[in-house]
Design a protein around this nucleic acid. Structure first.
Lengths: 109, 109
DNA sequence: TGGACATCTCACCGTGGCATGAGACATTCT
DNA sequence: AGAATGTCTCATGCCACGGTGAGATGTCCA
């Protein structure tokens, strides 16, 4: 069901500007392949930094930086667990991820 | 239902790296507020460049540049229609938008 | 206790992206 | 025909972002 163009169209110069701040922020986070991969990997359960770095072929250094971005945005959170407490496992915040997806769906319909 | 960490965890150094190229590309497009707004605006039907520019408070120049990015990605397409053929209306490619959303859903679950 | 390991943080640098301005082109109006 | 309008493209400048390296912290192992 598509809106047909009026026969004699008048310019609609005051269309409301949509609020896309949440969607744009979520998209900016996922725009980097490493961050997108991290979020995707964590779908299957907690993974520690060195495992992600090995899987992605990136330096743990770099992965840690991207994790900081995702952590600040609330998409992932550290889970200090395991016998070796040097390692830091990360898990997704499913509520935040669902909210991010919802904001993107609001744009892409 | 969350996967519990094993009591004695071993490092999984060969986790498969997910393919997130499509999702990252889609996210990069929506990462800019103007582009995200354009895609959102076009949900309600075709709109011409000057209308979008007015709605967003941006220069038509700038909007046209962002439209070129979206057009190259296949998310929108120009529709030369109307009595004044100077104006260019744009409409969304719903199939491409759905594909983009699907790739993002694949990441955010 | 010393060394290896895992992670985090910060500063630096190079690249890419966005906004801008100017110019070109087609179309409509007077 | 000439002016104004709507859009596109390209070149430029600036800024933010990602990758890297070094250093600090804390933990495990010999």
């Amino acid at each position: 069901m598509r809106t047909e163009l009026p026969v004699l169209e008048d310019l609609r110069m005051n269309l409301p500007a949509p609020d896309v701040t949440d969607a744009a922020a979520a998209a900016a986070l996922l725009a980097d392949p490493i961050r997108a991969s991290i979020v995707r990997i964590l779908r299957d359960g907690p993974v520690c930094v060195c495992e992600m770095a090995a899987s992605l072929g990136a330096r743990e250094n770099n992965v840690s930086n991207h994790l900081a971005r995702l952590r600040d945005a609330g998409l992932v959170r550290p889970v200090r667990a395991g016998s070796d407490t040097r390692r830091v496992y990360y898990e997704r915040d499913e509520v935040a991820c669902a909210a991010a997806l919802a904001s993107l769906r609001e744009v892409l319909a």
